[in-house]
Amino acid sequence: MHLTDIREKLAARPDLTRQLAQVKEQVATCIQCGTCSGSCPNAGFMDMTPRRMWRAVLTDRVDMVFSSQTFMLCASCYVCTLRCPRGLPLTGAMAELKQVAFGLNLDRFKRSTLFYKAFMDNIRQYGRVRETEMMARYFLAVKDPRVPMSYTGMGIKLMAKHKLHPHLPTWGPGRLAPLFDRAKQQER
């Protein structure tokens, strides 16, 4: 079952368990007033409002937390952090949940994870996004021909408007590699 699956995976990863505990600590003084959810521009697209997400975190309902896409939809606009009467770092907490979800390597977040990875690799390489290459690498990583197929329509449209600019990929450590390495170092 999903629940035991997540619990088992979490138990196997003490670092992620610790990170989740940190999130719980960060939002401990939440009074469930709903200001975050009321102010969230993406709340309407989320399967679970941010308030419910915090409640699930606080009541240790990891099954609810990681069966939701809510934190994936967080646009990091920081309105909730700005408005929270308890002064909680909610946007940061969403980002941490995202990281835990990636770390757990759950099937349901596989595509999101791969997308984020393709995006970040692209930034690391060029210091900006080259959409065409990024998508190509993403499609390769997904290893599912149905995914690129589903983008065919959009691709044709973009091509017609000359929006696709194929570049020859460059090799090497990447333009922003030192920055990324430094960040990784600091995370440790």
Partner: peptide, 24 residues
């Protein structure tokens, strides 16, 4: 509920102040 902030309505004088909140 706690209302997060207020913005003026489009035609405030005619319609009133829109208040958005999240019920429990």
């Amino acid at each position: 509920a706690r209302v997060h902030s207020l913005a003026p309505g489009l035609k405030e004088n005619d319609t009133g102040i829109p208040v958005v909140w999240l019920d429990p």
